[in-house]
Design a protein around this nucleic acid. Structure first.
Lengths: 204, 204
DNA sequence: ATATTAATTGAACATTTAGTCAATAAACAA
DNA sequence: TTGTTTATTGACTAAATGTTCAATTAATAT
C-alpha cells in the first residue's frame, strides 16, 4: 500500500553532499539551499527528511564519527593478538588515515560545537572513550600474550591518544604534509616507548 | 587639527564585546548587529572601525591568542632559573589557567578556521611555535644549570605540549571540571617523567 | 481502476545577514 | 570664528537564511 519510502537512501545522499560542501566551504557557511543546489533538488525536500538544520548537523556528525572506529578493523578476531597486531594499530593511529575518514577542518568545527551542544559532546565522548577502551583492551591482551609488559594499560592508552591528538593539533597548523609525516615519527616513537617496545622491531 | 582618534580604544571595546557574545552564542552565531546591540551603538560604527567582518574576526583571534604567552610571565628575568621555575611553568601548562584566557569552545572554533584561512593558520602557527620555543629554551637553561639532564630539549618540549593539547582535547569532552582536575595529573606526571624529574619533588 | 502513501516541487514567509552612503554631531587647531 | 577631522547615526540594500504549506507527481497494493 502506497509508495515505497526512500528515507534512508535520500538521507544518506543528503548527508554526503552536506559533508562535501562543508568540507570545501566550511560548516558554518553550508546552508540547506547550497546543499539542495548541488543535488539539484528543492531545499524543502531536505527539510522533509531532516526537520531542522540542527538535526541534519547531528546526522552529519554521527555519520562521520562512525567511520573512526574502522581504525580497529585490522585487529578484528585475532585472539590472541599476533606480534604485529599492536604495531599495525599504533601505525594507523599515527598515520594520516584519519584525515581521509573525516576532513580535519570539519572535524574540529564539529568538535567546537561540543562546548555548546550537549548532544554533540555526547557523540564525541562516546567516540573518544570507545577508542581508548579498545586500545586498552588490546594492550591488555598483548600483556596476557606475553608480548609486552605494561603496568597500567588504561593509563598508557590515554597517554598514547594524548600524543596522537596533541601531535595532530600541532602539526596540522605548523607543518606541511611532508614535514607532518616526518615529525610524527617522534611522537610515534614515544608511544612505542610507553609500551616498552624497542622502536626498531616495530617500525615499518 | 581635527578630532582626536578613538580608533584603538573603540576597536578594543568592540573586540571585547565580540568575545563575550561569541563565548555565549558561538562564533558563527555572532553577527555585527548583535555586537552593536549589546554595545548600544549603530552597527555601521563597527564597520567603520573594521572594514569587514573577516577583519573583525582576525582582530579577535589576534587579541585572544596574545594572552596565551602570559603563561611564561612567571619566569621572566630569572636567569639562571631557580629550582621551581620549571615546576611553575609545567603546573601552569597543565592547569586550567588556559580556559580563563580564552574560552575553549571559541578557541577550537577559531582553530578550525585554520584549515581554510591562511591568515588564521599563520596566527596559530606563530603561537604554538612560540610556546614550544620558550619551553625548549627553559629546559635548556635548566640543563645548563644542572637541574635536569634532558637529551633533546626541543623534542621533549614538543612531547610535553602534545600531552597538554591531547589531554585538553580529550578531557574537555569526557570529563567534568572535577574529573578534569583529577585526571590531568596523570598527564602532568608523564611530563615530569619526560623531564627526568621525580614527580614528588615538584608536585605542589 | 482506485485508493493510498510518499516524493517532490514551487511559492511564499519573516528574519537576519554584511555592508553602503549620506547626514549630522562633536572635538580640536588656527 | 572657521576649517578640518573623526565619531556616530539612520536609512537603506540586496542577498541569504531556515521553514512552512499547499499542490502535484509518482509509485505501489487491492
Amino acid at each position: 500500500m502506497g509508495r515505497k519510502s526512500l528515507k534512508e537512501i535520500r538521507q544518506l545522499e543528503i548527508i554526503k553532499v552536506f559533508y562535501k560542501v562543508a568540507k570545501k566551504e566550511g560548516l558554518e557557511n553550508t546552508s540547506i539551499a547550497k546543499i539542495a543546489a548541488v543535488m539539484e533538488i528543492n531545499p524543502s525536500l531536505i527539510i522533509h527528511y531532516f526537520k531542522t538544520k540542527d538535526e541534519l548537523t547531528y546526522a552529519l556528525i554521527d555519520y562521520t564519527l562512525e567511520k573512526y572506529l574502522t581504525i580497529y578493523r585490522a585487529e578484528k578476531g585475532t585472539n590472541p593478538p599476533s606480534a604485529d597486531t599492536l604495531a599495525v594499530v599504533i601505525d594507523d593511529l599515527f598515520s594520516r588515515k584519519w584525515n581521509k575518514l573525516f576532513d580535519d577542518g570539519l572535524f574540529y568545527s564539529c568538535y567546537a560545537l561540543t562546548f555548546r551542544e550537549k548532544k554533540v559532546k555526547e557523540m564525541y565522548r562516546k567516540l573518544t572513550d570507545s577508542l581508548r577502551l579498545r586500545l586498552t583492551a588490546l594492550i591488555q591482551r598483548c600483556n596476557d600474550a606475553g608480548l609486552i609488559e605494561v603496568d597500567n594499560p588504561r593509563l598508557t592508552a590515554d597517554l598514547i591518544f594524548a600524543l596522537v591528538d596533541g601531535a595532530y593539533f600541532y602539526l596540522s597548523v605548523s607543518a606541511n604534509a611532508k614535514a607532518f609525516d616526518e615529525k610524527i615519527k617522534d611522537y610515534k616513537a614515544e608511544a612505542y616507548r610507553l609500551l616498552g617496545i624497542p622502536d626498531v622491531i616495530f617500525s615499518s
